[in-house]
Amino acid sequence: MPRTILFNKPFDVLPQFTDRGTEGTPRRTLSDFIALPGVYPAGRLDRDSEGLMILTDDGRLQARITHPRHKWPKTYWVQVEGLPDAAALDALRQGVTLKDGPTRPARLRRIDAPPGLWDRNPPIRQRKSVPDCWIELQITEGRNRQVRRMTAHVGHPTLRLIRAAIGPWRLDGLTPGNWRDAPKPGPG
């Protein structure tokens, strides 16, 4: 029977099982947290990002999650520098033009700090003279560092990025470094 798991990837963990880096000191990878043979990530999450990753041994499901034609929504909690005004938020909602072309429109809203938010190690940089805020942003594509590039484009660099949901699956209390089995989604 196919297996699908939800994993809350901590900050500074590579989204792969081996470290092919040349930095000399081994970096933490998924193998530091998950000892299940045959499951592989369905998509990536940058080393400096946190949150939900889906791992599965079902190749068809993996392709459905990752292929752009399926447009699976990915929801992020994004702590940004500054307080975006209505024009900046509207630009993100409509889609912005990055170096690799226009993004699809995003769904977003300003939120309070997410409930149950864990501390990050190391903490984000804090500047007394520059406020920050949280937004919840949902996209249906997954370009390299897309959310970070989008918020920077509208003048509000990302300080912390947590993926909260992929399609029907959510973090829902899953703490960093832990995983749980997930039901397979229905057809679609």
Results as ranks from 00 to 15, higher is better:
E23K: 12
G38V: 12
G116P: 01
Y40L: 09
L89S: 02
D48A: 14
K71E: 15
T75Q: 13
T75S: 14
T97R: 14
L52T: 04
D58L: 12
R64S: 04
D90M: 08
L36T: 13
D46V: 04
P115L: 08
I5W: 01
D48W: 02
A113M: 06
I5D: 01
T22D: 14
Q94C: 07
Y40F: 15
D46R: 09
D32T: 05
K99I: 11
R60T: 13
T66L: 05
A88W: 02
L30R: 00
I111N: 01
P10R: 05
P73V: 15
R60Q: 15
Q16C: 13
H70K: 06
V13F: 06
I54W: 03
T22A: 15
D90A: 12
R69V: 09
D19L: 05
T66H: 03
G38T: 08
A35V: 04
T4Y: 05
A42W: 00
R20S: 11
L14D: 01
T18F: 08
F7P: 00
P84E: 10
Q16L: 08
D19K: 02
G51I: 02
I54T: 04
L55G: 01
G51K: 01
T75E: 14
A88G: 09
H70T: 06
T103I: 10
A42V: 11
V80F: 06
K9M: 06
Y40H: 13
P102V: 12
I5V: 13
